[in-house]
């Protein structure tokens, strides 16, 4: 699948934003009014940037408002509705916090739950696709949720600016858990082929009972939307290198930095560096998520 930059930013930024909302709603982070401003601003920025990036993926963004209409059947529509609902509830939570200084835990818990459901809906946009066997697993929502939790906790520990609260430790634990889930996802992905989803060339053409099916002539000499969107192959051969970068910057570097921060050097720069590194690694992880995923239609083209 084509790893559109808009989708990489959408899934990573909005994930971190909803993660931040969740941890804030559960009562983590300092309580001062100045911090309420900062926290709400950054959460809003991340979520808005993520959703704006997803709108850039649309060929007719002027009609994006219609995406709120089909929540009964469509995960993409549900994601839009839930993102708006989460933002509204968290907005109310943040306004009350800013103007009265009170952090209403029940409202925060609702915001946290809605955040988790929103990230789940985002992941289901991909998980629901039987056409992309690598994505069609409950491990995909687990990966999205775990990275949202880790990213949100990392952002919150940056905003805290080196104060001693459990959030940096939570970020470290969430990071480790997220990568354990991701490794499990990769393990499954390596064993998952198009044929296991009923999409080998033989199954795609129904000609397998005659013999082995291979492409003889393509239907068109040029490219087309299908090939560009779903038979993406550019630089897939560099997937191993990108995987190493994802693990190095997404997992190892931030984990070491957080360990140093937690054990003997509470410098506010360390969580910042950990976050920057983690985000770079996460972009690699998300790039692989799309670029390595094979779509059923590739079987017709005799291509991966």
């Amino acid at each position: 699948m084509h790893p559109a930059v808009s989708l990489l930013l959408f899934t990573t930024l909005s994930g971190a934003g909803f993660g931040l909302i969740a941890w804030t709603g559960l009562g983590f982070g300092p309580t001062g009014t100045w911090f309420a401003w900062l926290d709400a601003f950054v959460a809003g920025l991340l979520v808005t940037a993520g959703l704006s990036a997803s709108a850039m993926h649309l060929r007719r963004p002027d009609r994006a408002w219609r995406a709120f209409s089909q929540w009964r059947s469509s995960w993409l529509s549900r994601e839009a509705v839930l993102a708006a609902a989460t933002s509204a509830v968290f907005g109310a939570y943040a306004l009350i916090w800013i103007f009265t200084g009170a952090r209403l835990l029940p409202l925060g818990i609702i915001a946290a739950l809605l955040s988790a459901i929103t990230v789940y809906a985002t992941s289901m946009i991909y998980t629901q696709l039987r056409t992309v066997p690598r994505w069609a697993t409950p491990l995909t929502p687990a990966v999205f949720l775990a990275f949202a939790a880790a990213g949100g906790a990392l952002v919150l520990s940056v905003l805290e600016g080196g104060r001693s609260s459990p959030i940096a430790a939570i970020a470290l634990v969430a990071l480790v858990l997220a990568w354990i889930v991701k490794v499990a996802w990769w393990q499954r992905a390596m064993k998952t082929t198009r044929a296991s989803a009923g999409a080998s060339p033989e199954q795609a053409t129904g000609l397998g009972n005659i013999g082995a099916v291979s492409r003889f002539e393509l239907p068109h000499t040029g490219s087309n939307y299908l090939l560009r969107e779903m038979v993406f192959q550019v630089a897939r051969r560099r997937a191993r290198a990108v995987t190493r970068l994802a693990v190095l910057f997404g997992a190892l570097v931030p984990a070491v930095l957080l360990l140093i921060f937690l054990s003997f050097a509470p410098s506010p720069a360390l969580p910042v560096l950990a976050l920057v590194s983690h985000f770079a690694g996460l972009l690699c992880e998300r790039w692989l998520f799309f670029a390595e995923a094979e779509h059923a239609v590739g079987a017709y083209y005799g291509a991966r």
Binding site: M1, H57, L58, R59, R60, P61, D62, R63, A64, R66, A67, L76, I125, Q128, L129, R130, T131, V132, A199, A204, Y225, L226, E229, M230, H295, A296, V297, Y300
Partner: peptide, 16 residues
């Protein structure tokens, strides 16, 4: 007139 061009339907179709 209602399509926003997100392309998800094309992703969902195994037949291209």
């Amino acid at each position: 007139s209602m399509c926003m061009g997100c392309g998800l339907c094309a992703w969902a179709c195994p037949y291209g």
